[in-house]
Nucleic acid binder design. Structure first.
Length: 824
RNA sequence: GCGAGAGUGGCGGAAUUGGUAGACGCGCUGGUCUUAGGAACCAGUAUCUGAUGAUGUGUGGGUUCGAGUCCCUCCUCUCGCACCA
């Protein structure tokens, strides 16, 4: 190794040199300009957890290649980086180390910024932002208030998982075995007021515009479409017997409404109390509700509990049949969806069927294949397909689809129902009872009620001193200094809102702030209009739904608030695969974590980047392989030595006896490579095949010693091209080699080489000769050969003759420039 | 259960519109140079076979002169959704 080191390039000196130069010269700083087309490439910004992991390395390497490539292609490229810096880990670390979350977070950011710089990513660091800083979240608070004034923000009471000991709300995934994940004490259900964004107002647009996102993976679009979950159907009122009230239901199958035999409502249904209080059924129902709610928290999400329910003792009336329908409370009815009440049609819905069989409720089939009645006793499952109506009054004989429309129309006419669209998507609850988040800028005044903070008062900042100790987990609500304020309307003493915002809020608009990081408004419209939308967004598939949906929602809100003029934030989306090792996701517990710092000191950034790109196409998982990294490093060293030798020989003015043929070979391969690399990048960012093409070209140059003799200028030109093609992936190395070859300009100023189709064309083709579809021979022929001549040559070939074996030739198929198949 | 995607050497992965399967890299084998080599370089490397040849892209079938690629059957794996009325 010691002796061999002279054959190895000094990556650490080279990388340091170029990183320093890029930093000093602010090479990647950009501004809006009219003479160049803009290109905005963005990678999902990281949570500053402490150090960069291999997933980041991969993600940001891909983004950097795109950025550098697009610059060579003449674009004005915006490539920013920042920090998704609010969140629970900082709070936990603060409790553990008895410091302020800001201290932990900011020092993590410093460390990770250095790591990113060591990797040589071409960010415009002047635009860096951290969401935990008041200079960022003040604008978010402003947007919150503007959204509030537009009616897009509201408060409502919801049931939440509550930990008494921690005095905080827990997300479902923080409830482990019915207990708090942190203190292990039991979790209770509690009604709490929380703040919500009215994302459902945008449900239709969020759904519609999915069709225009041609640059997004189909998988992500499908996931979002399912998440929004639009369905159309009938909203219908069933009057309750002995009451002024009626029970509202939503159904997507109005054609089955004559088959209703009972009604199921959710445990949390608002009318339930009224239906049962004082009745003989009350006790049993309440017991059932209690049992169901506790089971709901405890239950393993992967299994579906058996359908259960209990009769409420009350009836409602099917307005279509005027029949009395018993009302049940059932464990499978969701309060969050539709109206929280379901008309049960056991013959045509599997859940209702199971429920009816269990409690021996009647089953009435009203949809059959031919419109004849069937014996429901014989059914062993619900019949859910559409068909012809029967036992449905004057709708008999009509097909399901037509009947759906007519039944809705009928309900509308008679005034007990209407057509309705229902979404699975629910409003976005953004309240968090946490310390390390952006404070919600609202004030509770005893006389004026809920009032937004005055804009001049923003930012509402978090207290500077340490947030809390272990015994005191309810952060802002326990800080009299934070809470105390005056009402902006009546100037009387009032209380600040103590909830902070979901951290998804920060990441919902950071991409727009990058366009105008210093703006004294939430956004500078002119700058944002220039840069938005993001042309290429790159990140993990794990954000396919929430982050991307929220960002799309915010973009539309920002548009409607007049800040920007685009409706969609990300024109193209690339979801890269995970980095795995030994077939599994890297994790401390598995002991298969690769530390980027170790790799950087051992091989340098260029090698790490090269391997990350070479080992797999970006959308697939990448299997990390130490020997593969070694291989990538070897390739760079080989290239280094070849160029060094070439430079020496040029300096010595070595004359090589060359032939035009050899030079033409390398010239041709060079143009083929440019074409291949360019199309691999443009089509789908398949850097792995682009790199392998460059390796092939380089392998050809090193055949010099054995097969070919290339002239110095030809060889030099070839190396030059290799350096430009490789530059986006391996920028320090290529910049250095570029100078070594005697260039005085910088690679950054280079333009991507033009390929020449004419020069790339092969002169000699290898034609495959088949007999009956089996390869029997290969022929070298000149490119322009006619089919007839080719056919003659193939038939004359000795091996082909041997397999024809004097049998009569039935047919000869000639595929231009490819093959000839002789069928006998 | 529903939906989507994927199954190619020892490994990561390549293969326009159906037209040379295994590019490129790793690993492995042999060699050269060396005191040595885990360096560098050269040669080889799907399987079976003495070569000629035969077989080969998860399984079984089909279309075709020709199928990794198109159609059908089944198997396996991964991901997403999972009582959404």
């Amino acid at each position: 190794m010691a002796q061999g080191s002279e054959h190895r390039y000094d990556f650490s000196a080279i990388e340091r040199k170029w990183q320093k130069k890029w930093e000093q010269e602010a090479t990647y700083r950009v501004e809006e300009r009219s003479d160049k087309e803009k290109y905005y490439v963005l990678e999902m910004f990281p949570y500053p957890s402490g150090r960069i992991h291999m997933g980041h390395v991969r993600n940001y390497t891909i983004g950097d290649v795109v950025a550098r490539y697009k610059r060579l292609r003449g674009y004005n490229v915006l490539h920013p980086m920042g920090w998704d810096a609010f969140g629970l880990p900082a709070e936990n670390a603060a409790i553990k180390h008895n410091t302020h979350p800001a201290v932990w977070t900011l020092s993590n950011i410093d460390y990770m910024r250095d790591q990113l710089k060591l990797l040589g990513f071409s960010y415009d660091w002047s635009r860096e932002l951290a969401t935990c800083l008041p200079e960022y979240y003040r604008w978010e608070q402003r947007l919150f208030i503007e959204m509030y004034e537009k009616g897009l923000v509201y408060q409502k009471i919801t049931t939440v998982n509550w930990c008494e000991s921690c005095q905080t709300v827990l997300a479902n995934e923080q409830v482990v075995d019915d207990a708090c994940w942190r203190c292990d004490l039991p979790v209770v259900q509690r009604s709490m007021s929380g703040w919500f964004f009215r994302i459902t107002d945008y449900a239709e647009e969020l759904l519609d515009e999915l069709d225009n996102l041609s640059g997004w993976p189909e998988k992500v679009i499908t996931m979002q479409r399912n998440w929004i979950g639009k369905s159309t159907g009938l909203h219908c009122e069933f009057p309750i017997v002995d009451s002024e009230l009626s029970l509202a239901i939503f159904t997507t199958r109005p054609d089955t409404i004559f088959g209703v035999t009972f009604m199921s409502i959710a445990c949390e249904h608002p009318l339930l109390d009224e239906l049962i209080s004082g009745s003989e059924y009350e006790q049993a129902v309440r017991a059932f509700v209690e049992k169901t709610t506790t089971e709901k928290i405890r239950r393993n999400l992967s299994e579906e509990p058996e359908k259960e329910g209990v009769f409420t003792g009350r009836y409602c009336i099917n307005p279509f049949t005027n029949e009395q329908i018993p009302i049940y409370v059932a464990n499978f009815v969701l309060i969050e969806y539709g109206t929280g009440a379901v008309m049960a049609v056991p013959a045509h819905d599997q859940r209702d069927f199971e429920f009816a069989r269990k409690y021996q409720l009647p089953i009435r089939a009203v949809i059959t294949e031919d419109g004849n009645t069937i014996d429901t006793d014989q059914m062993d499952e619900a019949r859910t397909e559409p068909g012809i109506l029967t036992q449905s009054g004057h709708f008999d004989g009509i097909d399901s689809i037509t009947a759906q429309h007519r039944i809705v129309a009928h309900a509308q006419e008679k005034n007990f129902g209407r057509a309705q669209v229902t979404y699975r998507l629910r409003d976005w609850g953004i309240s968090r009872q946490r310390y390390w988040g952006a404070p919600i800028p609202m004030i509770h005044c005893p006389s004026c009620g809920v009032v937004p903070a005055a804009l001049e008062e923003l930012p509402i900042t978090l207290p500077d001193d340490e947030p809390h100790s272990k015994s005191d987990c309810a952060p802002l609500s326990q800080r009299p200094d934070f809470i105390a304020t005056t009402c902006p309307r009546c100037q009387e003493p009032a209380r600040r809102e103590t909830d902070t915002m979901d951290t998804f809020v920060e990441s919902s608009w950071y991409f727009a702030r990058f366009a105008c990081p210093l703006s004294k408004e939430p956004l500078d419209t002119q700058q944002a209009d220039y840069w938005l939308p993001v042309d290429q967004y790159i990140g993990g598939i794990e954000h396919a739904i929430l982050h991307l949906l929220y960002a799309r929602f915010f973009t539309k809100v920002l548009r409607d608030l007049g800040y920007i003029n685009v409706s969609e934030p990300f024109a193209n989306l690339l979801t890269q695969g995970m980095v795995i090792k030994d077939g599994a996701k890297m994790s401390k517990s598995k002991g298969n974590v690769v530390d980027p710092d170790d790799l950087l000191s051992q091989y340098g950034a260029d090698t790490v980047r090269l391997f990350s790109l070479f080992a797999a196409p970006p959308e697939k998982d990448l299997e990390w392989n130490d020997q593969g990294v070694e291989g990538a490093h070897r390739f760079l060293n080989r290239l280094y030595r070849a160029i060094t030798i070439c430079v020496q020989k040029v300096a010595e003015d070595e004359v090589v006896e060359t032939t035009d043929v050899s030079d033409r070979i390398i010239h041709r391969k060079m143009h083929q490579t440019i074409k291949k690399v360019q199309s691999d990048i443009e089509a789908n960012f398949h850097f792995n095949t682009a790199i392998s093409a460059i390796m092939e070209l380089f392998n050809l140059t090193s055949e010099e010693r054995t097969t070919h003799r290339f002239s110095r200028p030809a060889l030099r030109q070839c190396y030059q091209t290799i350096l430009v093609l490789l530059y986006p992936m391996v920028p320090h190395f290529c910049s250095e080699m570029w100078h070594l070859l005697g260039n005085t300009t910088e690679l950054e100023q280079q333009t991507w080489p033009e390929y020449d189709d004419e020069a790339a064309r092969e002169e000699l083709l290898t034609i495959v000769a088949q007999v009956c579809g089996k390869v029997r021979s290969r022929l070298q022929v000149p490119a322009g050969i006619s089919d007839d001549t080719l056919q003659e040559m193939v038939l004359a070939d000795a091996n082909v003759q041997r397999f024809i074996d004097n049998k009569p030739i039935r047919k000869v198929i000639v595929v231009k420039n490819k093959l000839v198949n002789v069928v006998v």
